[in-house]
């Protein structure tokens, strides 16, 4: 047991938690943007999977990381566009649209991989490129913090930047305001002349773009190849992180970090003597507990607010 505690309080643990947070964080931010516009994007898992594949293919065939990134990004946008077209234009249920995209992704990625590489599981026969890791000059030299914060993948830093950008975009920018007003009350927004459908299109596309980086981090950062079903439910965990994030980018970041830690914990807890099946459950149990806790807290606050209001109304 002390060994486990030591590994949990080690620099590596925090470093690894940050790394495991990255894909979830990207997707959770994507889910956040869509959610604030009143759209539940359950297709994140599929977007991540597709982008993970096309990023690898693009970089392998062009020999350029930038082209690879572009391929992954365009794929994410394209799938989001399909989802937007069917859910907004054709009025399909957004949940079903997402389920459909995820279905297409699980089989479609294997189909594409097989057609191109003749391999149904991994893309190791291609030499694809990887986003570089970055040493941050000054921070690197700080004793403990340097080891935790420096030397991460470019995309990990980008995900942190994305938190700030998404926060600023949603809370401070004009399009962000539109997204929020559409999400809060579409009819009211329409009545003041906001084009609801167009705003939702934009939000979904942005959501797809963010999720695509999450996918590319898996195949071009964390690993150096595409592997069948490599998202392994991270798109769904991202939905949970967003639900816990209280609708803000900062909250979503912290919620994603909690999952990163839960996953890192499920790595560290291995070999403690617990049956491995219980250790494997940790991230998912953490998610449900988080949801319950969050929902309970929110309910309490609501009750208190209501009580407060009633008291106010009661007093002369």
């Amino acid at each position: 047991m002390p060994e486990v505690l030591r590994s949990i309080f080690s620099v590596d643990f925090v470093y690894s938690a940050l790394r495991l947070t990255t894909p979830v964080l990207f997707a959770a931010l994507g889910s956040l943007v869509a959610d604030r516009a009143g759209v539940t994007n359950i297709g994140l898992e599929g977007i991540m999977l597709f982008s993970a594949l096309t990023g690898v293919l693009g970089s392998a065939y062009s020999g350029s990381l930038f082209v690879g990134m572009l391929c992954g990004l365009v794929t994410g946008l394209f799938i989001a566009l399909i989802m937007a077209y069917f859910s907004l234009q054709m009025k399909a249920d957004i949940i079903l649209t997402g389920v459909a995209m995820n279905l297409v992704a699980t089989g479609g990625t294997v189909f594409i991989l097989y057609s191109i590489c003749g391999d149904k599981s991994v893309s190791t026969s291609l030499s694809s490129l990887v986003f570089p890791t970055i040493e941050i000059p000054l921070i690197r030299d700080i004793p403990v913090l340097g080891d935790i914060l420096s030397g991460h993948n470019l995309l990990t830093y980008l995900s942190l930047v994305a938190v700030v950008v998404v926060w600023f975009f949603l809370e401070k920018s004009k399009p962000g305001l539109r997204i929020r007003s559409v999400g809060e009350n579409a009819h009211a927004a329409e009545s003041v002349g906001i084009h609801v459908r167009r705003v939702r299109y934009g939000a979904l596309l942005l959501s797809g773009a963010l999720a695509s980086f999450g996918g590319m981090f898996l195949s071009m950062g964390m690993l150096t190849y595409f592997s069948k079903n490599m998202t392994a439910g991270r798109g769904y965990i991202a939905l949970a992180a967003q639900a816990l994030g209280n609708g803000s980018a900062i909250g979503t970041f912290f919620a994603s970090l909690v999952f990163g830690c839960a996953e890192a914990l499920s790595v560290s807890l291995q070999g403690v003597g617990l049956p491995p099946q219980f250790v494997q459950m940790v991230p998912y149990v953490a998610t449900i507990l988080g949801l319950v806790l969050y929902a309970a807290l929110r309910k309490n606050t609501k009750k208190r607010v209501r009580k407060h209001k009633r008291r106010k109304r009661g007093s002369p």
Binding site: L96, T97, G107, Y114
Partner: peptide
């Protein structure tokens, strides 16, 4: 695997 593409399209 081509089937999952068919199924997805039908749902959509």
């Amino acid at each position: 695997e081509v089937l999952s593409i068919v199924q997805g399209t039908i749902i959509l």
